[in-house]
Amino acid sequence: MAGVVSFLTRRRGGDRWHWTDVATWVWLIGGLLIIFGPAVWLVLSSFKTPAALSAFPPSILPYVTQEVQVEGFDKPLPLYEVTLPDGTTAQMAEKRRVGVIAQMIDPKNPGEVVKVNIKDRKPVEMVEFATSNYTEPFLQFDFLRYLWNSVFVTVMATIITLIVNSMAAFALSKYKFKGRDLILLVIVGTLMVPLGVITVPLYSIISTLGLFNNLWGVILPTVATPTGVFLLRQYMLTIPDELIDAARMDKASEWQIYWRIVLPLSAPALAVLAIFSVVWRWNDFLWPLIVLSRSTAYTLQVGLNVYAGQLNVQWHYILAMTVVTMIPVVLVFVFLQRFITRGIATSGLK
C-alpha cells in the first residue's frame, strides 16, 4: 500500500511537492467530476422510475420500492418497514392510504389491518434498473425509426463525403489545371463560414429539388465539406509525384491511379475524415431540424429535441434515449480517441 502511495505521489527527479502539483491534481480531479459526473449521472438517472426521478433530494442509484404480492389483491402492494406502536418493527404492505394514515397489512396475514402514521414507516427499497425506460420508447414511439434514420444519414453521408472529397482532393493535389487555384481559394474561403448562414436559401433549394422531409435533403448539403477536401489534399500532397508517374508508366489509367495508389496511401487521412464525418453527421441538429418536419423522417437528435420540448416532459424516456444517442459517440471515443486527438493536433480542424 505504501508502495502504491509512493508511486502515485512520485515526482520526476524525486522533488518534493510544489504548490503547482497540488493545483494540478485539484484541477484534474475537479475536471473528472465535472466532465464525467454529468454523463454518469445521466446514465444512472436513465434507469430510474418516474417516481424516483421526481424525488428530491435524488438518490444516486436507481431505487424502487419493493412490492409484494398479497392474497386477495390484484396488484402487488408496496412494502414498508413499519415501526409499530409497541416499538417493534415489521415489514408490512400498504393496503390503502388516507391522508397521513396508512392502512398496513402483514403480507402473511392479510386479514389484519394496522393503521400507521406515514412518519412511522419507511419504504423498503432495492436497487432496480428500470430497463423499461429503454424498451418502451422503441415500442411506443418511433425511436427505432429515428435510430435507423440517424444511422442511414450518418453512413450515407460519410461514404459519399469520402468518395467525393477524396476525388476532389486528388484532382487538387496531383493535377495542374486552369482554375485550380481559384477553386482552392473558394474552398479555403468557405472553410469557416457555416451552413447556419445560408439556411434560408438552402431550404428553398432543398424544397425545389423535392428533398424536403427527405433524408437526402439532410445528407447532400453536407457531403462537399471544404474541411474534408482541405484535410485530404494536404495529406495527398505528401504522396510523392514519382509514384503517380510510375503508375502512369505502368499503364494505369487515371482512375486506377486514384483508387489503387492514392486512396490506399491516404488511408490514415481518410480514417480521420471518416471518424469526423460520423461524429458530425450523427450529431447534426440545426439542419435536420429545418429539413425534417415529418416525424417519420426525424433523426435521433431531432426526435429527442421534439420529445424534450413537449409540455409533459417524460424525462425517464428522454434520459434513456439520450443515453442511446450517446452510445455510438462513446464507442468512437473509447476506441478511436487516440486517432482523433492526433488528427486534430496535426490538422487543427474540427
Binding site: P240, E242, L243, D245, A246, A247, M249, I261, P264, L265
Partner: peptide
C-alpha cells in the same frame, strides 16, 4: 518502362 530515382515503389 522507367526506373525512378526514389524507386517509386508502391509502398502499400
Amino acid at each position: 518502362a522507367m526506373v525512378f530515382q526514389s524507386y517509386a515503389l508502391y509502398p502499400h
